[in-house]
């Protein structure tokens, strides 16, 4: 009992979020152990993005609790939650548009370091610069390190968005539809990247591309109209009747 408790990285308890009359999340209970790649699927409007937004503190839940590494984080402001080690790459790409790739990532890395002299010139922080270059390489943006973010293609902006999330060295990485809008080639690159990242981090992945989900996920949670309707391994989920109904229903 104790050991399994310890290895849970994120847990939601009866999490509910309503917008006026609309219940976007309805008593959601999640328990995700360290190191897992958990996919969350469900039709549009199921509440997937809302779930990530409540976990990261962008939205305050109507009721219920969220625990991260055993500590309650419900109601904390987003920057506090980020500092504890949760990073989010949003459904709509969010970068610092007029800054270079380097600066974009630098900002995330800097957050981890406390400088003794707050007025030191930013280029003197060599440790940070090394880290930035390391992340750029890992992500595959090393050739575009000096480009301005808004000049990048959508695919590269998505990569940069993930790089920013990674740069804070999170314990839990939340990815909201990272493959949406990418070309086939870019999809392959990003999903390989996710695979690679999953070796070292716990990831919650929201994705519509079922093939990618089946390939990447350790376990899958299915949301529909704010409720968890199924949870299991990719194989279990693909054989679940209820899931098939929801999916067939929504695809038509």
């Amino acid at each position: 009992m104790k050991d399994s408790e310890k290895s849970i990285i994120i847990e939601t308890h009866e999490l509910t979020k309503s917008f006026g009359g609309l219940v976007a999340l309805n008593n959601v209970n999640l328990r995700i152990p360290k190191g897992e790649l958990r996919a969350i699927i469900g039709p549009n409007g199921a509440g997937k993005s809302t779930l990530l937004n409540t976990i990261t503190g962008r939205l305050t839940p109507t009721s219920g609790e969220i625990y991260f590494l055993g500590e309650k984080i419900t109601g904390l402001p987003p920057h506090e939650i980020a500092r504890r080690g949760i990073a989010l790459s949003l459904q709509i790409v969010q970068v610092f548009p007029n800054l270079s790739v380097f600066d974009n990532i630098w900002l995330g890395v800097k957050m981890r370091f406390k400088t003794r002299n707050p007025f030191i010139h930013w280029r003197q922080l060599k440790v940070i610069e090394e880290k930035v270059i390391e992340i750029c390489k890992k992500i595959g943006l090393e050739n575009k390190i000096d480009e301005i973010a808004s000049n990048l293609s959508h695919g590269d902006q998505r990569l940069l968005d993930i790089a920013i999330a990674l740069s804070t060295n999170p314990k839990l990485l939340l990815l909201d539809e990272p493959l949406a809008g990418l070309s086939v080639k870019e999809r392959r690159h990003v999903s390989n990247l996710i695979k690679e990242l999953s070796q070292e981090k716990t990831i919650i992945l929201i994705e519509h591309d079922i093939d990618a989900v089946m390939r990447l996920a350790d376990r899958i949670t299915v949301l529909d109209r704010g409720r968890v309707i199924a949870e299991g391994t990719p194989r279990e989920i693909s054989e679940d009747r209820q899931v098939q109904e929801v999916y067939i229903g929504s695809r038509e």
Binding site: R58, H79, L90, Q94, D103, L107, M111, F119, W122, I164
Partner: peptide, 27 residues
């Protein structure tokens, strides 16, 4: 000096995208 320091960088980041700055942990 202030704007060349890390603080200055964060200020620019806030101008560029306040939400993102908050999401990577800046108050």
């Amino acid at each position: 000096r202030l704007i060349s320091s890390p603080i200055g960088k964060v200020l620019i980041a806030i101008r560029e995208n306040e939400e993102r700055a908050q999401l990577i942990g800046y108050n």
